[in-house]
Write a protein that binds this DNA or RNA. Structure first.
Length: 574
RNA sequence: GCUCUUGUAGUUCAAUGGAUAGAACUGCGGACUUCUAAGCCGUUAAUCUAGGUUCGAUUCCUAGCGAGAGCACCA
């Protein structure tokens, strides 16, 4: 399909040249897939776009172009040319053999080394919805990079030092429960840490509410500061033990989640490492920075129309911003990439814009390869409370509750419990990921547990279900003898076939715009067309038409490949 | 207050400046002795307001109104 549209585009340019118009180039018009397939497979707006420049009526240009293309296009590629209004529409030749391309080469990716950093949860803190969202988007972007021909590495960056750790360790004393024994499950260990963080923050808020000059409050603030310092300098053996254990438990828990979600990271980075490196880099390049209040090291973002931010605080500790500089160096040192993407929430945009500006000054050769991709926030429609924590549901809890929901849906199916569990996991992940990826992730996403995660409609499970039906038919076809059918294909079969051709085109658009939603929307359309075909065309009959079997096989392959780009697994049964 | 993002059916989302603004959910109404009904078919319903640029604006620009986020030692 891409080769056909290129062919048409070149022919349009030849048409312009034949009229002596050398001032028209390919950026001025498009050859794209039609939205409405009753108007053909491809269209060009050449006449509309060029009318101004050519100072002619678009209709008459379109008519002339149509005549020209009708005689100049390769008849083995394009079956029919039609002029409607100012548009020229094309019906392509749909052959029986359809290849699903392994790679869809894109100049920005093919042969390049591309790093993706995403998820970035903090040990000892809960894995929240934002992490789930970034993981989903990042995994999909990584796979699009791979599809586009890049060599890809996946990075995760985790905050294993800083205030949240200090608050957690400090908060332990306000819990009724004791520090967990080794025998306690990993889930409960992590839950303990999460509640310690909540308890610590709650206590602090409680003290603060009685006045910021309150002695108790000032004492607590001081204690947390001391705790933070101990985490950095490792001078307190008791703190070291708690810290090391807590960190390890959290990381183990994250791996469990990555396994469920289908992400495998190549490299992990920690703030405990990037902090000192970042601080040194800032100090070595102090000429780009300034001193602010209390001798803090600041970057004067205002000179660049941005915020001014602190990089090293008045205690001499690196902040998030300095750590980012250290991270940039560490990431590049471990693997010299051509391009690096970081997927993160857009609430950090204004801070990271400052940071990237600083990185470009301190480490120009690295900074210029780096790019941030910001996603919107995930919000809840009904603000449903999580019963256990009393807070909005956490990312991992959401995954687990969806797994329960899809397991419930399968309760009457005849399969082993283990099989059901695996399928329920994959369906749950599909439901969550598809909800995120079917839309523009740069905007906020409203997450309604009741509705958005419904397993019907525009959903991941709907597509998985379609793939299951196909596999079920194909399994039965194995025992039948097939013959090549004669006569016209049904209108549903033809429409399905023409839709399959668009896959390559859609992938290229998704890669080009870093927009997985194009693929998600396409898969919904394809699954819907298949289901229309399926209900109206009996495949297993006395004489099985191999053309229909071929259509089923191709549809399955495209659904599988498409879901793969979204980081979603297909299942054999549901 | 300043900066950034955002405004499409009742709801949740689509739509490189182009054709009749597409889906899904909900509501209402259908079909089935059929390969998995998590399916299929029909139906009601939308571009925040005011200007501007353009042959053409949901899309670009300006202003207003609404929503979200950020604004120095958290990340």
């Amino acid at each position: 399909m891409i080769s056909v549209s290129t062919h048409i585009q070149n022919a349009c340019l030849d048409f312009a040249t034949s009229l002596g118009r050398t001032d028209i180039d390919s950026s001025m018009f498009v050859v794209d897939v039609t939205k409405d397939m009753s108007k053909g497979d491809l269209y060009t707006n050449f006449a509309l776009a060029a009318a101004g420049k050519m100072e002619k009526n678009p209709m008459s240009i379109a008519v002339d172009l149509g005549v020209y293309l009708d005689t100049h296009l390769d008849k083995t590629l394009v079956e029919k040319v039609e002029v409607v209004g100012g548009y020229v529409n094309f019906w392509i030749v749909v052959s029986d053999s359809l290849e699903i391309p392994e790679k869809i080469s894109h100049p920005s990716f093919a042969g390049k080394k591309v790093a993706y950093e995403y998820t970035d949860p903090n040990p000892m803190k809960e894995f929240h919805i934002g992490h789930l969202m970034a993981n989903t988007i990042g995994e999909s972007m990584s796979r699009l990079g791979e599809l586009a021909g890049a060599e890809v590495k996946r990075y995760s960056y985790q905050g294993d030092v800083g205030r949240h750790i200090a608050v957690t360790l400090w908060g332990v004393r306000f819990l009724d429960a004791n520090w967990p024994e080794e025998s306690v499950s990993i889930t409960d260990k992590v839950k303990f840490l999460g509640s310690a963080y909540v308890a610590g923050n709650a206590k602090l808020a409680e003290l603060k509410s009685t006045g910021e000059e309150n002695e108790e409050y000032l004492k607590a603030v001081k204690e947390i500061e001391v705790m933070n310092q101990k985490v950095y300098d490792r001078t307190d053996e008791e703190v070291n033990v708690m810290y090391d254990q807590g960190r390890e438990w959290s990381l183990e828990k994250f791996e469990e989640l990555y396994d469920i979600l289908g992400t495998k990271f190549d490299y992990y980075f920690f703030e405990s490492i990037t902090g000192p490196i970042g601080r040194d880099l800032v100090l070595q390049n102090i000429k780009h920075f300034a001193r602010g209040e209390n001798n803090a090291v600041i970057f004067e973002g205002e000179k660049f129309d941005m915020h001014t931010r602190v990089f090293i605080n008045s205690k001499g500790l690196p902040t998030y911003e300095a750590k980012e500089i250290g991270l940039a160096k560490v990431k590049y040192d471990v693997w010299a990439y051509d391009k690096s993407f970081v997927i993160t929430a857009n609430e950090q945009k204004q801070a990271l814009d400052v940071t990237l500006t600083a990185i470009k000054l301190v480490l120009p050769e690295i900074g210029n390869k780096n790019e941030y991709i910001f996603n919107g926030m995930m919000k809840f429609a009904n603000m449903k409370m999580s019963s256990r924590t009393g807070k909005i549901i956490a990312g991992d809890e959401l995954v687990y509750s969806m797994m329960d929901a899809s397991l419930e849906k399968m309760k009457d199916r005849e399969m082993s419990e283990g099989e059901k569990k695996t399928i329920a996991r994959d369906v749950a992940v599909a439901a969550i990921k598809f909800t995120i990826l079917k839309q523009n992730f740069r905007k906020d996403i409203i997450f309604d547990q009741e509705k958005s995660l419904a397993l019907e409609g525009d959903s991941g499970p709907y597509i998985q279900y379609t793939a299951v039906r196909i596999q079920s038919v194909l399994k039965k076809v194995k025992d039948e003898t097939t013959t090549i059918g004669t006569g016209e294909l049904s209108k549903e079969a033809l429409l399905l076939k023409r839709t399959l051709y668009r896959f390559e085109h859609v992938c290229l658009a998704a890669i080009d715009e870093s927009a997985p939603q194009h693929i998600a929307q396409y898969l919904i359309d394809l699954a819907s067309k298949f289901n229309g075909f399926y209900t109206n065309n009996k495949i297993i009959t006395e004489s099985v038409d191999s053309r229909l079997v071929g259509l089923c096989e191709h549809t399955l392959k495209v659904l599988e490949k498409g879901l793969w780009t979204l980081g979603i697994r297909t299942v054999e049964k549901m």
